[in-house]
Design a protein around this nucleic acid. Structure first.
Length: 849
RNA sequence: GCCCGGAUGGUGGAAUUGGUAGACACACGGGACUUAAAAUCCCGAGGAUCCGGAAGGGUCCGUGCCGGUUCGAGUCCGGCUCCGGGCACCA
């Protein structure tokens, strides 16, 4: 041990020790309870950024804590190594995506090792390696077997810059989630996973995780799934056998329907207009809307103007028999519900706006329930109330002008009208969801090939399991054009049919990379299995994940897909639970000031406010960088980068290190190891602080309040520094107390700054390091108890004095002590004491008048 | 527009869930060491104001704003303001 703290030396030394000792590898036959600590796997862009450092520092702190507490901790890492950047590099610079990816992984792995994150490296996985994506393909086939993977021609979100299809999640807001380009609509044959089949469970099972997941994430998922209860209602069409089915959540307003409005893309539009004189006009309108929709993606912020056209067709309101016009309009979504709505201008903002524009009648059928109202308003209101209503009235209320249902409350009417529709065969209760099936086809090279071939005779045929993986070819042409580069690789495309062995062609699309991340953490349980994605028995020992940590940018994509995937794996018998992750932590962003401004933004190269973790490690050491990152803000908050802050962390580590250096000689004497009988008052105070700190740190770890843990450790250190005994003159009892404090401090520091902790632990007489588990200190409640309490005394709620009392003081004694306090007596002299409130062990408040 | 968060010193943030507001740190100021600087160590500090030669001590105000509940409110309730985020024609 050097007298001075040299982080670089210490860190290199312990990283080697850990590697040699395989300190963080785990075995399934370990009898201790398991803990699965997982951080979101990174994309191998080539360089870690501070967001990664924060993510892994949080995860590693927890992994260390649990390990020290005696858990068998699985803490793995891998690479989300399929995806666009590798392919972009191939297009722009002609490099091989595989080489590019492997080089990036090698560099980032080195950075992680320099940070000293305690990963079980033998379990490292990478999505782009055939032994991994083989199982993507295997899962695809299982989806296919069950009808959960299907192909359909559909308008897809198309990123023109990257020449690829995006999922709904990846194109939310009309822009590409990756490059920000405006998304266009195109019709392509695409593979989909039937996530909608699991929509109900995705909502329902939130109950199982609501204690462990941030409400913010659950809410976004709930919104994304968009469960909505309502009813289908069929409107018959005059002079036709066809019906228009609409979905509504407000069947109670149906007597106010003054039109039925179809999406311009509704299949019935064509058919119904066959005989209509307006056919050409309406079709022209539909084309115009379609063109506008495609163009609109160029300026998505722009609010769309509602436009429509009367088709001249009449629909029949099944409740009233009334004939109302059928319109087509651009504001009705084909993707949601049935692609058709009943228009109730009086009670829906959108219909109101539309009706005003086209002078459709606005008929009020719901009245506000006034407070205490008993009587029912009668149906005396006039037909057209557009003048009387400045807005749509969208609240629930009481029905008017609604036939037999007038006078009923909305809630009740909804139930009764739905039941009536069902009984008469023109409707039924229905639940709809906003979530759409997950489009997984990508016209890209750098992904898992879709294991399907097309045979002239047999049509679409799945590849046999035994022929997996369908390997990516070594080379391809990267033109950046629309087709998958795989289409140009003859060796890849041309194959034989698994069925009839005649010539066939492979599907040339690859899978969305979110497929990899949907199940990767199950692979860590059994990473080298070449007979299965994982052995269910091994997975059972580790999963579900106890704590997952990552950015909240994945709140709806990855974190919904992985929940879906888990339910699917449950259904094919691989796992026995519904939810893959018990606790989720969404860490805050790391931001830095943009030079010359007062703006704090996420670090990024393009903004020029990035901080290179390597430089941090070189300048201050990994231990200090990690300590600072965890201390500077609560884990879920934004973290504002500060150079001086990290210097403070170095200073703290240096001070602790120096303290250990100063005491190590004295503490090597065995007598300091056994507890003395008598301790001085100040020694007892230090012990008290030690045990109070242990208790606080332990409970804060359970909540991942890492910043307050560091503060508590600093407090303990400050008290230790102020302790009067010095190494040269310390009694055995004093030395014992110092040892207890120092050892506890070093152990509790290990999750934050493990290298320095190892070094100090060794020099406190524990050769062999911290590697063995089970060292976490135990708080002794007896020793942590205060010998004397300082009780604040208030008069009329204002702090006026303090008295000292023993922790055993009774309420009565406290009251007396407060009233007899000199200062208090002079203050309340001559006034009437109305009441004395005594909070045991806490405070006394004297109320006077 | 709708739905969530949040607002505490110069700064990041603490506060046992209704009980001494500002822990811990950064930045800052003063001092020691030094020829000097850096490093290190010690001390100070919410604001205003008063008493005292000093050490110290007192009073008032103070957790975005207004109001309420309570012996007591950063914490609970009602009404706002501002900031951040999510969704965005989902019938």
């Amino acid at each position: 041990m050097d007298e001075k703290y040299f982080p670089e030396q210490i860190e290199t030394k312990w990283q080697q020790h850990w590697e040699q000792a395989k300190a963080f590898e785990v075995r399934e036959d370990d009898p201790r309870p398991k803990f699965y600590c997982l951080e979101m796997l990174p994309y191998p862009s080539g360089f870690l950024h501070m967001g990664h450092v924060r993510n892994y520092s949080i995860g590693d702190a927890l992994a260390w804590y649990k390990r020290l507490q005696g858990f068998n901790v699985l803490h793995p890492i891998g690479w989300d190594s399929f995806g666009q950047p590798a392919e972009q590099a191939a297009i722009k610079r002609g490099v091989n995506p595989r080489d590019w990816t492997e080089e990036n992984i090698a560099h980032m792995r080195g950075q992680m090792k320099r940070l000293g994150i305690s990963y079980a490296w033998s379990r490292e996985i990478a999505a782009h390696r055939p032994d991994f994506y083989k199982w993507d393909q295997w899962f695809f086939l299982r989806m296919y077997d069950r009808g959960l993977a299907y192909k359909k021609k559909s308008p897809v979100n198309w990123c023109p810059r990257e020449s690829t299809v995006l999922s709904n999640e990846q194109s939310s807001g009309g822009v590409c989630w990756r490059c920000g380009a405006q998304v266009e609509k195109r019709d392509l044959e695409q593979w989909f996973f039937r996530i909608t089949e699991y929509a109900e469970q995705l909502v329902e099972h939130m109950k199982q995780i609501e204690d462990g997941w941030p409400e913010k994430v659950l809410k976004r998922q709930r919104d994304w799934v968009g469960r909505s209860e309502g009813a289908y209602v069929d409107f018959a069409i005059k002079d036709s056998d066809e019906k228009i089915r609409v979905f509504t959540t407000r069947i109670d307003t149906i007597f106010g329907a003054t039109a039925v409005v179809l999406s311009t893309e509704h299949p019935l539009v064509d058919e119904l207009l066959e005989a209509s004189a307006l056919k050409n006009e309406v079709m022209a309108f539909a084309d115009k809307v379609k063109a506008e929709k495609a163009a609109r993606s160029l300026a998505p912020e722009e609010e769309e103007v509602k436009e429509g056209m009367n088709t001249g067709i009449l629909a029949i309101n099944p409740f009233s028999g009334e004939r109302i016009p059928v319109w087509v309009a651009n504001y009705v979504l084909i993707e949601y519900g049935t692609g058709a709505v009943m228009s109730v201008p009086a009670h829906d903002e959108r219909d109101f706006e539309f009706a005003q524009k086209y002078s459709l009648p606005i008929r009020r059928v719901i009245e506000r329930v006034s407070h205490g109202q008993e009587s029912i308003p009668h149906d005396a209101t006039s037909e057209d109330q557009s003048i009387a209503m400045p807005h749509a009235f969208t609240d629930y209320g009481i029905l008017v002008n609604s036939g037999d249902w007038s006078g009923k409350l909305s809630e009740q009417a909804i139930v009764e009208l739905t039941r009536f529709a069902q009984a008469h065969g023109f409707g039924q209760a229905a639940v709809t969801y906003r979530i759409r099936d997950w489009g997984v086809s990508r016209q890209r090279f750098w992904g898992a090939p879709i294991p399907i071939v097309y045979c002239e005779h047999c049509g679409m045929v799945p590849v046999s399991d035994k022929d997996l993986p369908v390997r990516l070819p070594e080379r391809a042409e990267f033109t950046g054009s629309g087709q998958s580069p795989l289409a140009g690789v003859a060796d890849f495309v041309n194959t034989t049919c698994p069925n009839c062995h005649s010539p066939a062609r492979r599907d040339t699309d690859t899978m969305d990379t979110f497929v990899d991340s949907s199940w990767y953490f199950f692979r860590y349980c059994d990473p080298h299995n070449d007979a299965a994605a994982f052995d269910p028995e091994l997975a059972k020992q580790w999963t579900p994940v106890d704590q997952y940590i990552g950015g909240d940018s994945h709140a709806v994509m990855h974190l919904i897909y992985t929940r879906f995937w888990t339910k699917f794996m449950r259904d094919i018998g691989l796992v026995s639970f519904d939810e893959p992750v018990k606790r989720l932590l969404t860490q805050g962003m790391v931001t830095n000031r943009i030079e010359g401004t007062d703006e704090w933004k996420a670090m990024s190269k393009s903004l020029g406010n990035g901080v290179d973790p390597d430089e941090m490690i070189t300048a201050f050491g990994a231990d200090a960088a990690r300590l600072f990152v965890l201390f500077a803000a609560p884990v879920e908050n934004e973290l504002r980068w500060s150079e001086t802050g990290i210097e403070g962390a170095v200073r703290f580590l240096r001070r602790v290190y120096t303290m250990v250096w100063r005491w190590q000689q004295r503490l090597s004497n065995q007598e300091t190891n056994s507890e003395a009988v008598e301790f001085s008052e100040s020694a007892r105070a230090l012990r008290r602080k030690t045990h109070q700190t242990i208790a606080k740190v332990t409970s804060d770890f359970e909540e991942l309040h890492l910043n307050t843990i560091v503060a508590a450790l600093m407090e303990l250190f400050n008290e230790l520094s102020a302790f009067e005994a010095q190494p040269a003159n310390a009694s055995a009892a004093d030395a014992f107390v110092v040892r207890e404090a120092l050892e506890s401090l070093v152990l509790m520091l290990a999750p934050f700054s493990p290298h320095a902790a190892e070094e100090m632990w060794e020099h406190l007489g524990h050769a062999g390091g911290l590697l063995a588990s089970g060292h976490w200190p135990q708080a002794d409640a007896e020793l942590a108890r205060r010998e004397e309490l300082e009780i604040p005394i208030q008069v009329n709620g204002k702090l006026r004095s303090r008295v000292l009392a023993s922790p055993q003081v009774t309420e009565e004694e406290l009251r007396t002590a407060a009233l007899n306090d000199k200062k208090i007596r002079s203050l309340i002299d001559g006034q009437q004491v109305v009441k004395v409130i005594v909070v045991p062990q806490r405070l006394v408040n004297i109320v006077v008048r």
